[in-house]
Computed example of a mutant assay.
Amino acid sequence: MLNSPRIFLDAVSKYCVTHGIQIEIRAAGWLVVMRRGTKQHLAFGYDLGLNSSVAHRIANDKAATAEVLHALGIPCVPHTVFFSPQMNEVMPPQASWEAMIAILRANPSGVVIKPNEGTSGNSVFRVSNGPELELAAHRIFASSPSLAMSPWLDIEDEVRVVLLDDRPLLVYSKSRPTILGDGVRSVLELALAGMPYEMRSTVFSDMIYNLDSATLNSIPPPGERQLLSWRHNLDKGAQPVLLGEGKVRDDCVELAAQAANAIGIRFSSIDVVNVNGAWKILEINSGVMMEALGRLHPELVYAAYSAALDKVFD
């Protein structure tokens, strides 16, 4: 659980108080028991329990999600699953390493590997050669039974769509951390000066991992903008920016709704990415986490969770 109180718990608690629902918070905040009359409902983590177990498991599996979407012709980022060697006891052994190297060779710009199940951008690595791939795979398999491998893509923009039964509750882009050159200070100095104190440890660890020392010590000319991370993860320093009405919003909502219907999920947050001018599904999240957005727009987050809970207790 996060060290600070989660807005998810706050939103659920306020809803229950307002609607005369008894609530018990257990398991250090991960399990919520709600009762109204004879009806009892459970929420776990960031999952309010609206989705079927099959939809939840597919959404939680990046490779399975990509397989379903690809089969139905819905544009998506391909993900290939590989299992830890420790899984050989329960699964037929596979020539995983040769297949991973083949995917790497087929993508000269590099690949991204990450746990096949998981969120928040933890243990996500961009690799460009065999030794980097081997090290990253070992790190992931140390804590996860499987990993997902996808081509590295130059993502121009990433948009998150929070959907409830095909209705968009929230649509926002993820703005990556950047600095603006002044011709005097280095990238590192500018990052230190412009980064909020509470975000420094998160952003700097990601920045130092992704930028070499020459880049960190370089002095950008006045007005030149420098990205500090290739990742759009909100837990790694990106900031949510609400999208107004328009074609981008409409296109993202339409594609997200197609993806949600493809796996039969009711309440989800779906990440849509723009690559070379075309929108694709990156992943579907069954647990709807909105902590970063809640710090800026808590009223919108409360409204979104309330709408979902209305469906639960309707």
Rank of each mutant, 00 (worst) to 15 (best):
M1F: 04
S4M: 07
P5T: 14
R6A: 11
I7E: 11
D10Y: 04
K14I: 08
V17G: 00
H19S: 01
G20I: 03
I23S: 04
I25G: 02
V32H: 09
V33A: 12
M34N: 03
R36C: 06
R36H: 07
G37T: 12
G37L: 03
F44D: 09
G45T: 12
G45K: 03
D47Y: 02
G49R: 11
N51W: 11
I58C: 05
A59K: 01
N60W: 07
A63F: 00
A63T: 05
A64E: 10
T65P: 03
V68E: 11
V68Y: 07
V68L: 07
L69R: 08
L69W: 04
L69M: 04
L69D: 05
H70F: 10
H70Y: 01
A71C: 03
P75R: 10
P78V: 07
S84D: 13
P85D: 11
Q86H: 10
M87W: 06
N88V: 02
E89P: 02
Q94K: 09
M100T: 02
M100V: 02
V111K: 12
V111T: 08
V112Q: 01
K114Q: 04
P115A: 00
E117P: 00
G121K: 08
S123P: 00
S128C: 14
E132P: 05
L133E: 03
H138I: 09
I140M: 08
S146Q: 06
L147D: 02
L147S: 01
P151G: 04
D154E: 15
E158I: 07
R160Y: 04
R160D: 08
R160F: 02
R160C: 02
D166F: 08
V171Y: 00
V171N: 09
Y172R: 02
S173L: 02
K174V: 04
R176A: 09
R176G: 06
T178R: 14
I179N: 11
I179V: 15
L180N: 03
L192D: 11
G194K: 12
V203R: 07
S205C: 09
I208S: 05
Y209V: 06
L216E: 01
N217F: 10
P221F: 01
R225D: 00
Q226H: 13
W230I: 07
R231M: 06
H232T: 06
L234S: 15
Q239L: 14
Q239G: 02
L242N: 08
D250V: 09
E254D: 12
A259E: 00
A260P: 09
A260M: 01
A262M: 09
A262S: 11
I263M: 03
I265M: 06
V273I: 15
N276A: 12
G277R: 06
G277F: 05
G277Y: 12
I284V: 10
N285W: 08
M289P: 01
E291V: 07
A292E: 15
G294V: 05
L296W: 12
L296Y: 06
P298W: 09
E299A: 13
A303D: 09
A304M: 09
D310Y: 13
